[in-house]
Amino acid sequence: MPSLPSLGYGLGLRKEHYHAILETEPNVDWFEILSENYLVAGGKPRFFLERIRERYPLVMHGVSLSIGGTDPLDRDYLKQIKALADTIEPHWISDHLCWTGVEGINLHDLLPLPYTEEAIRHIVDRVKQVQDFLGRRILLENVSSYITYTDSQMSEWEFLGAICEQADCLILLDINNIHVSALNHDFAAIDYLEGVPVERVQQFHLAGHSDYTNYAVDTHDADIVQPVWDLYEKAVERFGNVSTMIERDDNILPLETLLNELDQARRIGGETIHSELNSHA
């Protein structure tokens, strides 16, 4: 079971939905915000955030930590993250198990790491620094990837598990990213699920992607496909009632359509939990 109680079923907060959320107060249990959009204390983004925060629990999700990067940790960024967290009091803070650039450049992408002992040591040390600074455990999310480095010595899930155990951090498991990476790297998605330490998984992401003949690209701009729903069901079986949210970054749909997709997650999650409970009764 996750270490914090489940928040239920959430959505990624997008500016296109600010008005609809405040006007209709939709049946969403919580929202995940992209931290980088709210680092400046003011303007429209913070104006809406304050109002939405009065009604919904929030979690913070970042893209610029570059926890696997080899530039020094960006202290200014961490200070801004901490200041935002002090203001909006998120239930937790997450970022990605990746690197985003070196030599001061931000490539604005979540780039994969070689799965090596060197990388594990490097990242464990940085996660500890970040957690000490923020005064809380962080969640790391698995990214979807298209390349494997020749130097990799283990599977992605072994790499993720080792870092989280050694640094004592938590996991944001992106179900779609597992599906996409499994296609791109020829492994079985179920092996990934079974290789992840159960007690560390704090949150799920669900999203859509683009399928090509021999590979898939994580675009976060499409509906969730059936194999991802199936994998989600397996994930709920293994990890239990974990906070679940749907990410949609591009091709933003009306809130209502996303609510329907969220209801589907609720249904699958609810039924799976229910039948698990019965089978253990």
């Binding site: 298209y146 390349i147 494997t148 480095y149 020749t150 020829d186 003949t213 021999n214 590979y215």
Partner: peptide, 17 residues
């Protein structure tokens, strides 16, 4: 420094990035 597969070449993989 990276691995390709017959159906998904190094070139295509890097091209996505």
């Amino acid at each position: 420094l990276i691995v390709g597969t017959p159906g998904f070449s190094i070139e295509t993989r890097l091209g996505i990035y």
